[in-house]
């Protein structure tokens, strides 16, 4: 039995009109074989070894630079007076100038690590609700984060969606297309890197309102879960911007009162070992009122449902 009110929309005149529109603007089909050959050629070119002379130079250059760095560090250490304590190096850029109540307030030591992606957003549009930018949860942004625009303009995230955010603007006005860059937010960059590395579909988890990870076996056994089939809730998203013109909506996870630190042991009566099993057990298209999640919270078993 299918209770989804949208089911069958593809058979309605409006649905068929849209299908025709999609077909009309479908891209010309590419030559997959030629494309694959081009990709393999690029990979082979990238793997071609550098000329011997250059490698030879690099082989000597690396230890030389390393040795020079070691000497420099030794000099600094030896020249530091014995009773002087080294103060904590202040961050080069503040993480968040005025963090919102729902953001993580832990002190963060800023490191510039090239492995973390730079967070860039573009102003998409402005309406009665505010200004929308094309960066959101997947880019590591959370409510309270700030981004800088041109000429001392600054935006602050006031509602966040998976792919977009609504922001308040200070210091001037912004037009669509304006590029904004996040003030260095190590946490946000880490979250964005995690999103990029994620093997599953974190977009779906954000829509649900919680990010989870497999509980290490040792921790699971300490909780009495001998087979280790359990997930830890790493982060919950209380509300999500699902429509650029609408209000943020409470996520299913928030409605269930799922909390960070909860250990999920069952979803709809099924054990879950990893993110993929969790996604499958949730069944994104089902009625959330049919969902039941059993968690361990502070050592006690709690059943969460919307019924």
């Amino acid at each position: 039995m299918n209770n989804d009110p949208d089911s069958g929309f593809d058979q309605t005149p409006e649905g068929r009109e849209l299908i025709a529109l999609l077909a009309k603007h479908a891209p010309p089909q590419p030559d997959s074989r030629a494309g694959a050959q081009a990709v393999m050629a690029r990979l082979r070119a990238a793997e071609t070894p550098a000329p011997r002379g250059r490698l030879f130079t690099m082989r000597w250059l690396v230890p030389l630079v390393g040795a020079a760095a070691a000497v420099a560090i030794a000099f600094v250490v030896l020249s530091t007076p014995p009773n002087q304590t080294t103060p904590n190096t202040p961050p080069l850029v503040s993480d968040k100038d005025d963090p919102a109540p729902d953001t993580d307030r832990r002190a963060v030591v800023i490191r510039h690590d090239r492995a973390w992606p730079e967070i860039v957003g573009t102003v998409r549009n402005e309406n009665a609700e505010g200004v929308t930018i094309d960066a959101g949860l997947k880019d590591g942004l959370r409510v309270g984060d700030t981004l800088d625009g041109p000429q001392n303009t600054r935006v602050r995230v006031i509602a966040v969606g998976v792919f977009e955010s609504r922001v308040s603007v200070s210091g001037g006005t912004l037009v669509p297309g304006t590029e904004l860059r996040a003030r260095v937010t190590t946490d946000a960059q880490k979250r964005a890197a995690q999103f990029a590395d994620f093997g599953g579909d974190p977009g779906a988890f954000y829509q649900f309102g919680a990010l989870v990870s497999a509980l290490p076996l040792s921790e699971a056994r300490m909780l009495g879960i001998s087979d280790g089939a359990a997930l830890r809730v790493d982060e919950t998203i209380p509300a999500l911007l699902k429509d650029a013109g609408g209000a943020p909506q409470s996520t299913i996870a928030a409605q269930l009162d799922l909390r960070t630190g909860d250990v999920i042991v069952e979803v709809n009566g099924t054990n879950v070992r990893n993110e993929n099993e969790f996604a499958k057990a949730l069944g994104w298209s089902l009625d959330p009122r049919m969902l039941s999640i059993r968690v361990l919270r502070n050592g006690k078993q709690v059943d969460l449902t919307l019924r």
Partner: peptide, 30 residues
């Protein structure tokens, strides 16, 4: 190589959905 051939259209369609331009979408698929 087999995987690329099998999923090339998927990457191309995803890129085309953003760019609306087939030559750029081919470049991005690669």
């Amino acid at each position: 190589g087999h995987l690329v051939e099998r999923y090339y259209r998927a990457a191309y369609a995803s890129a085309y959905g953003v760019l609306g331009n087939s030559s750029d979408a081919e470049e991005i698929a690669q």
